[in-house]
Amino acid sequence: KKKIKIYIENENGEKKTIEIEVEGDIDEIAKELAKKYNVKIVKIEP
């Protein structure tokens, strides 16, 4: 498992940072999160 930080922006332009532990393809997981929460991924840090 890797701990990563995902910087997101919602439709109101509010920026947030999510810190999660992931296993597998980080890009795939980030895309799923973006779709699920309707946010834009700004940056992903390993």
Rank of each mutant, 00 (worst) to 15 (best):
1 K>S: 10
1 K>Q: 07
1 K>N: 07
1 K>H: 10
1 K>W: 07
1 K>F: 08
1 K>D: 02
1 K>L: 13
2 K>C: 11
2 K>V: 15
2 K>F: 14
2 K>S: 09
2 K>D: 05
2 K>H: 13
3 K>G: 06
3 K>M: 12
3 K>H: 11
3 K>Q: 08
3 K>R: 15
3 K>N: 06
3 K>T: 12
3 K>P: 05
4 I>W: 15
4 I>L: 10
4 I>A: 06
4 I>S: 02
5 K>L: 13
5 K>R: 13
5 K>V: 13
5 K>H: 06
5 K>G: 01
5 K>D: 01
5 K>W: 09
6 I>T: 00
6 I>D: 00
6 I>S: 00
6 I>L: 09
6 I>V: 09
6 I>Q: 00
7 Y>P: 00
7 Y>H: 11
7 Y>L: 10
7 Y>V: 09
7 Y>S: 06
7 Y>M: 08
8 I>P: 00
8 I>S: 01
8 I>L: 11
8 I>V: 12
8 I>R: 00
8 I>E: 00
9 E>C: 05
9 E>A: 03
9 E>S: 04
9 E>K: 03
9 E>M: 08
9 E>W: 04
9 E>Y: 04
10 N>Q: 12
10 N>Y: 15
10 N>T: 15
10 N>F: 15
11 E>N: 10
11 E>I: 09
11 E>W: 14
11 E>G: 09
11 E>T: 09
11 E>M: 11
11 E>C: 12
11 E>P: 09
12 N>W: 14
12 N>P: 01
12 N>G: 07
12 N>L: 13
12 N>M: 13
12 N>Y: 14
12 N>I: 12
12 N>Q: 13
12 N>V: 09
13 G>L: 04
13 G>H: 05
13 G>C: 05
13 G>M: 04
13 G>T: 01
13 G>Y: 04
13 G>I: 00
13 G>F: 04
13 G>R: 03
14 E>W: 12
14 E>V: 11
15 K>C: 12
15 K>S: 14
15 K>D: 05
15 K>R: 13
15 K>Y: 12
16 K>N: 12
16 K>Q: 12
16 K>C: 15
16 K>I: 11
16 K>A: 14
16 K>R: 14
17 T>G: 03
17 T>R: 03
17 T>F: 11
18 I>A: 01
18 I>L: 13
18 I>W: 15
18 I>K: 01
18 I>D: 00
18 I>P: 00
18 I>S: 00
18 I>F: 13
19 E>S: 07
19 E>T: 11
19 E>Q: 06
19 E>F: 09
19 E>I: 13
19 E>V: 12
20 I>E: 01
20 I>G: 01
20 I>F: 08
20 I>C: 12
20 I>L: 14
20 I>T: 03
20 I>N: 00
20 I>H: 02
20 I>M: 14
21 E>T: 07
21 E>F: 13
21 E>D: 09
21 E>R: 06
21 E>I: 13
21 E>V: 07
21 E>C: 14
22 V>E: 05
22 V>K: 02
22 V>T: 12
22 V>R: 04
23 E>P: 02
23 E>I: 13
23 E>Y: 13
23 E>H: 10
23 E>V: 12
24 G>H: 04
24 G>F: 03
24 G>E: 02
24 G>P: 01
25 D>R: 04
25 D>M: 04
25 D>Q: 05
25 D>W: 04
25 D>G: 03
25 D>V: 04
26 I>T: 04
27 D>S: 09
27 D>N: 11
27 D>G: 08
28 E>W: 07
28 E>A: 11
28 E>H: 08
28 E>L: 12
28 E>I: 08
28 E>P: 03
28 E>S: 11
28 E>R: 10
29 I>C: 11
29 I>D: 01
29 I>A: 11
29 I>M: 07
29 I>H: 04
29 I>S: 03
29 I>W: 12
29 I>N: 02
30 A>W: 08
30 A>V: 15
30 A>I: 15
30 A>Q: 03
30 A>E: 02
30 A>T: 08
30 A>L: 15
31 K>A: 11
31 K>G: 06
31 K>S: 13
31 K>T: 07
31 K>Y: 07
31 K>R: 13
31 K>M: 09
31 K>L: 12
31 K>I: 08
31 K>D: 07
32 E>I: 12
32 E>Y: 09
32 E>A: 13
32 E>R: 13
32 E>N: 09
33 L>H: 01
33 L>G: 00
33 L>V: 05
33 L>N: 00
33 L>S: 00
33 L>T: 01
33 L>P: 00
34 A>P: 00
34 A>E: 15
34 A>V: 06
34 A>Y: 04
34 A>F: 03
34 A>S: 10
34 A>M: 07
35 K>W: 04
35 K>G: 01
35 K>F: 04
35 K>M: 06
35 K>D: 08
36 K>A: 04
36 K>L: 09
36 K>F: 07
36 K>D: 12
36 K>M: 09
37 Y>I: 14
37 Y>G: 14
37 Y>E: 15
37 Y>Q: 14
37 Y>F: 10
37 Y>P: 11
38 N>Q: 07
38 N>M: 06
38 N>Y: 06
38 N>R: 09
38 N>G: 14
38 N>F: 05
38 N>S: 05
38 N>P: 13
39 V>F: 14
39 V>W: 15
39 V>I: 10
39 V>H: 05
39 V>M: 08
40 K>H: 11
40 K>C: 14
40 K>A: 08
40 K>V: 14
40 K>G: 05
40 K>Q: 11
41 I>W: 03
41 I>D: 01
41 I>S: 02
41 I>M: 04
41 I>P: 00
41 I>A: 02
41 I>T: 02
41 I>Q: 01
41 I>C: 06
42 V>S: 03
42 V>A: 03
42 V>I: 15
42 V>R: 02
43 K>Y: 11
43 K>R: 13
43 K>W: 14
43 K>P: 02
43 K>V: 08
43 K>A: 11
43 K>H: 11
43 K>T: 06
43 K>C: 10
43 K>L: 11
44 I>P: 01
44 I>F: 06
44 I>N: 01
44 I>E: 02
44 I>D: 01
45 E>R: 03
45 E>W: 10
45 E>S: 06
45 E>N: 02
45 E>Q: 06
45 E>G: 05
45 E>H: 04
45 E>D: 04
45 E>A: 05
45 E>C: 13
46 P>W: 15
46 P>A: 13
46 P>R: 10
46 P>Y: 15
46 P>H: 14
46 P>T: 14
46 P>Q: 14
46 P>M: 15
46 P>L: 15
